[in-house]
Amino acid sequence: MAHQVRAVIAREKSAPVALETIVVPDPGPGEALVKVEACGVCHTDLHYREGGISDGFPFLLGHEAAGRVEAVGAGVTEVAPGDFVILNWRAVCGQCRACRKGRPWYCFATHNATQPMTLLDGTPLAPALGIGAFAEKTLVAAGQCTKVDPAAAATAAGLLGCGVMAGFGAAVHTGGVGRGDSVAVIGCGGVGMAAVAGARLAGAAAIIAVDIDQRKLDRALAMGATHTVDAAASDVVARVRQLTGGFGADVVVDAVGRPETFRQAFYARDLAGVVVLVGVPAPGASVELPLLDVFGRGGAVKSSWYGDCLPSRDFPALIDLYLQGRFDLDAFVSETIGLADVEKAFDTMRHADVLRSVVVTA
């Protein structure tokens, strides 16, 4: 039977979101019905509301979520009712050319639930990143569910579903940060802070946090940064080089995604160092670099999509580290709120110093 649940809907571009009743079907083949316990409020959700991702309104927002599997459809073997899971938006297919090459984190054919969730009048909803978890229940492809230790707090665990995994993976997977490396992270919001935490866990010797907000820089120090640079008052490239013996950092993570921060990242790295772009650029943004500098500096310039993660591998491992007290996911939770407070959380995101507001539905 279908389920009527409360959910947060964006009906029109730039209009306030609304808490409405929607219809969620029982899972069909390859699908799972998940009772959402917690879901982080991510900038991506705001981008959906603002029409910055597509014009496929109405959207069912929310995607950084954890909860319990309530039911599964035919053929599902990955998870079972009662499992505590983190939702992901990269359900790998196992068959595309990337998967066959042993690089499933690049999967070119990720999938979502087949059946639509709808408004009460039958209008299909477009779930954010194929998830739609600002809801009491949501329907996803079973491959979007990653089973983890149920001892983890849902408020913390769900954040691995997007921002924290993106930042951690940008440093550790894409950037390849290792023991003794020097790392600079430009932009210390949720993604950048996760890159700082990831670099610390990987054993980096120097971790330089760069931002224009002193509050974020102070928090980066608590997360494991060894140095900070106020980008509003300093020449970022010169300061990073000064802090790394005049050479530049082995890995520089741009968690902002603006042309000026990308240029800073490019020139703040050591020769043969790695630049990682994980901040999402605005449509139409571009950067111009002397081709001779690209050639002469060597190394690598990479983009990181979802932290080059493999949820089945990375989510359980990071939850284990969290439960061991070695990866403080709770530190990313700035506040807990209800479903009716998402619009207020969007406003807070714009004007206040928060890492994540987390919606609690259970």
Results as ranks from 00 to 15, higher is better:
164 V>I: 15
138 T>S: 03
152 A>D: 07
267 Y>F: 12
220 A>M: 12
290 P>K: 15
4 Q>A: 13
179 R>K: 08
306 Y>C: 00
26 D>P: 02
122 G>P: 03
5 V>H: 03
163 G>C: 00
125 L>T: 02
152 A>V: 10
269 R>D: 05
130 G>T: 07
58 P>S: 05
271 L>G: 01
290 P>I: 15
204 A>N: 10
200 R>E: 06
271 L>T: 07
161 G>K: 11
71 A>W: 04
321 L>K: 14
311 P>S: 13
147 K>W: 11
70 E>N: 07
21 T>Q: 02
226 T>A: 15
275 V>R: 05
26 D>G: 05
233 A>M: 15
88 N>H: 13
203 G>L: 08
289 L>D: 06
193 M>D: 02
323 L>E: 05
194 A>N: 07
65 A>E: 05
137 K>D: 03
223 M>L: 07
1 M>Q: 00
78 E>C: 02
36 V>W: 06
41 V>W: 00
302 K>S: 09
234 S>D: 11
166 A>F: 03
339 L>E: 10
225 A>V: 14
354 V>Q: 08
31 E>R: 12
107 C>H: 09
111 H>P: 09
4 Q>Y: 01
81 P>M: 08
5 V>I: 13
349 M>S: 09
321 L>T: 04
356 R>G: 01
362 A>L: 03
330 D>S: 04
136 E>S: 05
322 Y>G: 06
310 L>T: 14
22 I>Y: 10
84 F>V: 12
201 L>R: 15
256 V>I: 10
167 G>D: 09
328 D>N: 05
137 K>G: 04
252 V>F: 05
214 Q>H: 09
95 Q>C: 05
7 A>V: 08
67 G>C: 09
276 V>M: 12
314 D>K: 12
196 V>P: 03
347 D>E: 10
246 G>Q: 04
26 D>F: 06
151 A>Q: 15
127 P>Q: 13
36 V>A: 04
245 G>K: 09
37 E>N: 06
26 D>R: 02
222 A>M: 01
297 R>L: 02
285 A>D: 15
227 H>L: 06
186 I>N: 11
163 G>T: 01
272 A>I: 01
108 F>R: 10
13 K>M: 15
203 G>I: 11
132 G>P: 00
135 A>N: 13
92 V>S: 05
92 V>Y: 13
100 R>E: 11
104 P>K: 10
